[in-house]
Amino acid sequence: MLTLRAIRKSFGPTTAVDGISLDIAAGEVFGLLGPNGAGKSTTIAITTGLLVPDSGTVDLLGLGSPSDPAVRMHLGLAPQEITLYGELTARENLMFFARLYRVSAPHARVDRLLELVELDGRAHDRVATFSGGMKRRLNLAAALVHDPKLVLLDEPTAGVDPQSRNRILDLVRALAAEGKTIVYTTHYMEEAAKLCDRVGIVDHGRMLDVGTVSELIARHGGHSTVTVSRGEAHDRVVTADPVSEVARQFGAGGVTGVRVEQPDLEAVFLALTGRSLRE
């Protein structure tokens, strides 16, 4: 579906993307996980054809570069910023983009999208009056108006409340269920772990590793930690086989509490970069 080969992009002395290569299969939900400034958004911009890489190639659907408008028709982008017209209503915004993309039966398509993002009740309200979460959902709907095969979601939950975040995550799951290919950038490891079939860890413009969440943890997350309590005493055991370790502890007797800490993507990021994802 999407192939990036040795993409590089610099802005003056700053290298934003440093040789990133990727292969994303059709129907896959792929997460680009990294801290702010890691190069995720630049990678997305190059993927859309909005930015021309200094070197490297991008191929979408085997059709060539997305700098070609005919190729670009197959992708939809929900940028990190809210890119909507605040003085137009939700419906007018979507109708405008639908007409730009020459969508057939645009009214029906827009109605369906408004239902999908649960804004059908606010269709005729100006976007400027919406909450942050509502704007985010409409921003996402605008990316879907022409029914693209590849959907690029750049930090779609940035700055929204937990309730809106859950709605957006449900929406992404619904899109995945429809068979869309999704590239999802985030610096929230929980989102990546919940949503993505595979995750690429990005930092300083480089792709540090790519794999399923369990593969990445297995490769970089280290062992689980089993904390066993016996009265006031607490013992921590680092083990590759936490199940056997818990069984062994119970066999020894006197156990009043057990806590198992499995490694997560935070641990993976820490192992790969030497620093926390949230630093």
Partner: peptide, 14 residues
């Protein structure tokens, strides 16, 4: 400045 130019550039228009 409002970012909509990115969307317009992505659309199949020149």
């Amino acid at each position: 400045s409002r970012g909509t130019l990115a969307r317009l550039r992505l659309a199949p228009i020149t």
